[in-house]
């Protein structure tokens, strides 16, 4: 029925009875496409991603893999589902076993892939195909992770993920540990692979500028809730939630003014009502109640004043701050 590969359905995660993620619903369609989860540290974006990856079990709500509830899986079904969703982490140094050569890391991944039956020359040609795919030279197979550059490490991580022929790649800040020129090359690579392999990307990042090139859909999280989600171009270029607007206003632009700081990030968030209201420059009395994630045009926004923001990031410069 649905064309979604993977879906979070009202996922809530609590630790010690405190919810760190509230009622998040998110759909990952079949590739080539991408969904971005953006927000500041502590917003819950990584937790949501880990739940989608099957690394943690939601306290309530479901993670659906096609038509099936992930929590009902048998052991073999679960292994299959895990292989479908592969992670690529921020730091290749951390993400590779320091004692394993590139060749061994790829061989290990191949041993659990649909190509596990390949032997000898066929296997070697699959390894070189993988390396070729990520733009690495065959000579790298005998190197240990610390003997290659940061960009190469990240390429090895991508190759290892591709070895099991996944459908979804979870990209957790895939370029933030890299130099900007290397970052540009990795982004190009990811864009090419997305189309060549019809991959769905789930991108977790605080760098809004890289979202657009990989993801057509974006969810903005604040204090464990999705505050705005919709097509990337709409969300990032004409935000409807004041938090999205403040994120965009805070981005330094080449040769531009000093970016705008909205409210004070260290005031935290409200426990009841709209969690953003303490930082919100346009909060009103109505914000003491919790706003629903309501549909506005092609997106969902949880803000009583979404119509006032209406795609105008400069609203956050407004002086009507209520403490």
């Amino acid at each position: 029925m649905t064309a979604d590969l993977l879906r979070a359905d009202g996922v809530t995660l609590s630790y010690a009875k405190r919810a760190v993620v509230h009622d998040v619903s998110l759909e990952l369609p079949k590739g080539p496409t991408g969904v971005a989860l953006v927000g500041e540290s502590g917003s819950g974006k990584t937790t949501v991603a880990r739940a989608l990856l099957g690394m943690i079990e939601p306290t309530s709500g479901r993670v659906m893999f096609g038509e099936m509830d992930v929590s009902q899986f048998s052991r073999s079904e679960r292994a299959e589902y895990r292989r479908t969703v592969q992670p690529v982490f921020q730091d290749g140094t951390e993400a590779l076993d320091p004692r394993m050569t590139v060749g061994k890391a790829l061989a290990e991944a191949l041993s659990v892939s649909p190509d596990a039956h390949l032997r000898g020359a066929a296997r070697a040609s699959r390894v070189s195909e993988l390396l070729d795919d990520v733009g690495l030279d065959g000579g790298i197979v005998d190197r240990l992770p610390h003997q290659i550059s940061g960009g190469q490490r990240q390429r090895v991580c991508i190759a290892r993920a591709l070895a099991v022929r996944p459908k979804v790649l979870l990209l957790d800040e895939p370029t933030s540990a890299l130099d900007v020129t290397v970052q540009a090359k990795i982004l190009d690579l990811l864009r090419r692979l997305q189309h060549e392999h019809s991959l769905t990307y789930l991108l977790i990042t605080h760098n809004l500028a890289i979202v657009e090139s990989l993801c057509s859909y974006t969810a903005v999280m604040f204090a464990g809730r999705v505050v705005e989600q919709g097509p990337t171009r709409e969300v990032l270029l004409s935000p409807s939630h004041p938090y999205t607007a403040s994120l965009i206003a805070a981005l330094p632009r080449m040769g531009g003014q000093i970016p705008t700081a909205v409210g004070r990030a260290d005031v935290g968030f409200a426990e009841s009502g709209c969690s953003f209201r303490m930082r919100c420059p346009i909060a009103i009395d109505a914000c003491l109640a919790s706003p629903e994630l309501a549909s506005i045009g092609g997106r969902h926004v949880s803000c009583f004043r979404a119509n006032d923001v209406n795609g105008d990031p400069s609203i956050v410069n407004s002086k009507e701050v209520t403490p």
Binding site: R82, R83, P87, V112, A161, V164
Partner: peptide, 13 residues
Amino acid sequence: GRAYMDAVRALGI
């Protein structure tokens, strides 16, 4: 808890 073990688990090793 290291990232490379997360990667290993995700592969279904």
